[in-house]
Design a protein around this nucleic acid. Structure first.
Length: 435
RNA sequence: GCCCUGGUAGUAUAGUCCGGUUAGUAUACGGGCCUGUCGAGCCCGUGACCCGGGUUCAAAUCCCGGCCAGGGCGCCA
């Protein structure tokens, strides 16, 4: 049987106030500085990093021998005494009495994780697990974990039920976006690009539903904000319109900021981010207003055409922070978006922007079966392939609205990262399928 | 899918325009010295021009093709 090592303290428990306590720690060798007669080991565990100091003379022969060859990322067990130490940067250290190497790491490691030499994103992703051990990279995902928790607690408090919809589907949900094909027992199937139709159906059961899930797009995008596998936060609610769900969304975003600030101050400091809770309500601008604004800037834009990236970048310069774009032309939106009754050429729709980055998109959905069928046809799609979905609209479909939020993009904003791949543990894009 | 830029030790880079000694530096790695380091320091050492073709007396350097990477556009979250 493998001997189970014991632990009495985590690295973050090693504080000057605990001077004199006996401690046993487990972790990875983050750094070693060997001065000959004295050796400093930085031990890293899930909680953080602490300094272990060992004096060769005071250490037994066996223990001294054990750590003679200590290298980066070796797993060690340490027993010693906590000592207040003004000479150490953290003001405290553990004077090691016994050290055992539990697992050796190979060397040289593919790249330096202490940050002395930078690495390209590609190299980092090739050795992702090592990369994630860097405290500032780990911090991103601790923040993500808090953000996910905050989203769940916020939505549950407001009566939303967490659901899970299929990833393997028979037909394209919205047309347009390229889907990955799957061989499903000899039949053609696809990986879901969104839970859209399922979450709409489920509002007739649970009224308010949400899902946090992974979805897929087979677009060959070469940008720093697109990947082929991404995490989406989706909500859908019966008896709400787009104004109602925009309110849910902006309050959710503010709540996530608040929680991350409360629980991840240390991680935010580590990555050098000064987060603020955004003021609600977020500014709302209609598509029409922004078309005028862009024209005022000298941009050539035809009414009805969706904003291109250059347009969004200009808008992002003019509008800092979060804002909504509302009432998009019906033509530019998916078939299930409700056209405005008073002005059918625009729709009850919105995008949530952070400067130039699109974070979420949503709207009131069509609940009238005949209208939905007509819209499917108008978009050049075949109602026959949506018959499973359409039949639900004959069973009593209330008005409803919802949105989908790109969680990874929200993480880019929260952590101020340049590339979406940095906020995904194991990103998948056109070129990357491993690790 | 289209466009731009790039590929030099494990990692990150200089050198490439304007072809010509031993391809420089940092870090990592190996050896040595060192009892207060915290980007530890000092000495010694190992280690690289993406692949193929062409031009040339001579190619890391110029040309062509391929592969790989970063990014922009399109599309979208």
């Amino acid at each position: 049987m493998v001997e189970k090592p014991s632990r009495t303290h985590y690295a973050s428990d090693i504080t000057p106030e605990r001077d004199g306590e006996r401690a046993e720690l487990l972790g990875w060798v983050h750094e070693v500085r060997d001065l000959g007669g004295i050796k400093f080991i930085l031990l890293r565990d899930v909680s953080g990093i602490c300094q272990i100091t060992v004096r060769k003379k005071e250490l037994g022969e066996r223990a001294a021998d054990e750590i003679k060859d200590l290298g980066f990322e070796d797993v060690i067990w340490v027993r010693g005494v906590v000592k207040r130490q003004p000479k150490a940067r953290l003001g405290v250290e553990v004077v090691g009495e016994e050290i055992r190497v539990l697992a050796k790491a190979e060397r040289p490691l593919p790249y330096d994780i202490t940050g002395k030499v930078p690495a390209n994103i590609d190299t980092r992703l090739d050795h992702r697990v090592l990369d994630l051990r860097k405290p500032e990279n780990k911090a991103i995902f601790l923040i993500a974990s808090t953000a996910l928790k905050a989203i769940r607690e916020f939505l549950r408090e407001r009566g939303f039920i967490e659901v899970r919809t299929p990833r393997i589907i028979a037909t394209a949900t919205e047309g347009g976006a390229a889907l990955f094909e799957v061989n499903y027992f000899g039949r053609k199937a696809y990986l879901a690009q969104s839970p859209q139709l399922y979450k709409e159906q489920l509002t007739t059961v649970f009224e308010r539903v949400f899902e946090i899930g992974t979805f897929f797009r087979a677009e060959e995008s070469h940008t720093r904000r697109h990947v082929s596998e991404f995490t989406s936060v989706d909500i859908e609610s019966a008896f709400m319109d787009y104004r109602d769900v925009m309110e849910v969304l902006e309050n959710l975003i503010a709540h996530v900021h608040r929680r991350v600030l409360e629980e991840r101050e240390r991680e935010l400091n580590l990555i050098g981010v000064e987060l603020e809770v955004p003021k609600t309500p977020f500014p709302r601008y209609s598509y029409d207003e922004l078309v005028e604004e862009l024209r005022g800037m000298g941009e050539d834009i035809e009414w009805g055409q969706d904003f291109g990236t250059p347009h969004l970048r200009r808008l992002g310069e003019a509008h800092k922070g979060y804002y909504f774009i509302t009432d998009f032309p019906t033509e530019s939106k998916p078939f299930y978006i409700q056209p405005r009754r008073d002005k059918p050429e625009v729709s009850e729709s919105f995008d949530l922007m952070y400067e130039w980055l699109e974070l979420a998109s949503g709207g009131t959905r069509i609940s009238d079966k005949a209208l939905l069928e007509r819209r499917i046809r108008e978009q050049g799609l075949n109602p026959e392939s949506f018959k499973e979905h359409l039949k639900v609209f004959g069973y009593g479909m209330p008005m409803h609205a919802g949105w989908g939020l790109g969680f990874d993009r929200l993480m880019m904003v929260l952590t101020n990262r340049w590339n979406i791949r940095e906020v995904i543990l194991y990103p998948r894009d056109v070129f990357r399928l491993t690790p």
